[in-house]
């Protein structure tokens, strides 16, 4: 008797956690089926990460540096993506470079989102002069061609950037767009009844921001993060292709720089420029689909209208 009851008890405590995760997973899966963009986007990014992960495990990444393999080889069994003019193994370059490019984007995206969120909140919640000045900076900053401002910044701090410094340079402008959109969101949320009730029950400004506004903004912040990351990657690849990137790092943008520098196109070395192009296409389409999917998740009201 005693033993069966303990078994039952164990079963009872174990079962809910299992079914909890199962249910979560099923709910997520069901949601993804309703939201195909999210599924497609996540799938594309997953494939890319899987490629890098498996590549890191089975391939010798030291071949990503120049002069490590014979130069100018077309793809073969030994070198799946061939090698470039300076003797980099392009398969190793892609496996090592994709995470670096993602790292630049994610780092700059996170910084941009954090700064943008802080500014957006201050601007919308406190209003007045702070709002006018911040809105002016954001409005003007967004009309100016970002890449050119980043060029000036990158040239001024030059002396060969590292990958993380690259992310910091790109982050200089990455906060503008999140600041604008989050400001607009907070403006509409500020007047909702639950915020007013919180205010009437004596919650302070910071308390309202952290306990009432921020939790409700989370899905929206996630969507903004994906958008900020995508534009940060776009900007970083642009800077790198112009020759302002980390010269020693095998990022996707630097590969494009060498492709342009050595006119790989005129040499007909398709295996040199095809892999970075395919990775860029998968990366941007994946991020684009995820952001479309998250938009639908963040604003359910527009879900069925369009």
């Amino acid at each position: 008797m005693a033993s069966t009851s303990t078994v039952e008890a164990v079963g009872l405590t174990k079962k809910p956690t299992e079914s909890f995760w199962q249910e979560r997973w099923q709910a997520f899966w069901r949601y993804c089926q309703r939201n195909p963009s999210l599924l497609v986007g996540l799938g594309m990014l997953f494939v890319l990460l899987l490629f890098c992960f498996i590549g890191t495990l089975v391939y010798d990444l030291s071949k990503a540096s120049p002069l490590s393999v014979p130069p100018g080889l077309p793809p073969s069994r030994e070198y799946p993506f061939g090698s470039d003019n300076q003797g980099r193994d392009l398969f190793a370059v892609m496996v090592a470079g994709t995470p670096l490019t993602l790292r630049i984007g994610l780092l700059a995206g996170l910084i941009g989102l954090a700064v943008g969120t802080i500014f957006g909140f201050f601007s919308a919640y406190y209003g007045g002069l702070v709002d006018i000045i911040l809105r002016g900076i954001v409005d003007i900053g967004l009309t100016v061609p970002g890449l050119l401002v980043l060029i000036i910044i990158a040239v001024a701090v030059k002396g060969n950037l590292s990958v993380d410094q690259m992310a910091l340079v790109v982050a200089c402008l990455a906060w503008l767009y999140p600041a604008r959109t989050i400001r607009a969101q907070v403006l509409t949320m500020r007047e909702r009844t639950y915020v007013q009730i919180a205010r009437l029950s004596g919650e302070g400004g910071l308390e309202i921001i952290f306990k009432e506004l921020l939790p409700n903004l989370l899905p929206y912040l996630l969507a903004s993060l994906v958008g900020a990351t995508a534009s940060a990657i776009l900007a970083s690849i642009g800077l790198e292709a112009l020759g302002l990137g980390p010269m020693e790092a095998p990022t996707i943008g630097m590969t494009l720089y060498w492709v342009i520098y050595y006119s790989a196109l005129l040499l007909g070395m398709w295996w040199w420029f095809l892999p970075p192009i395919v990775i860029i296409i998968i990366l941007f389409m994946g991020l684009f689909n995820i952001s479309v999917g998250l938009d639908e998740f963040a604003n359910p009201r527009i879900r069925r209208e369009v």
Binding site: L142, T143, V144, P145, G146, L147, L148, A235, G238, A241, L242, I260
Partner: peptide, 18 residues
């Protein structure tokens, strides 16, 4: 269109390089 001009130009810079 007015808001996108800067963005378009940033992209066109690299098209010219290519």
């Amino acid at each position: 269109l007015a808001l996108q001009l800067g963005h378009i130009l940033s992209g066109a810079v690299l098209v010219e390089v290519v």
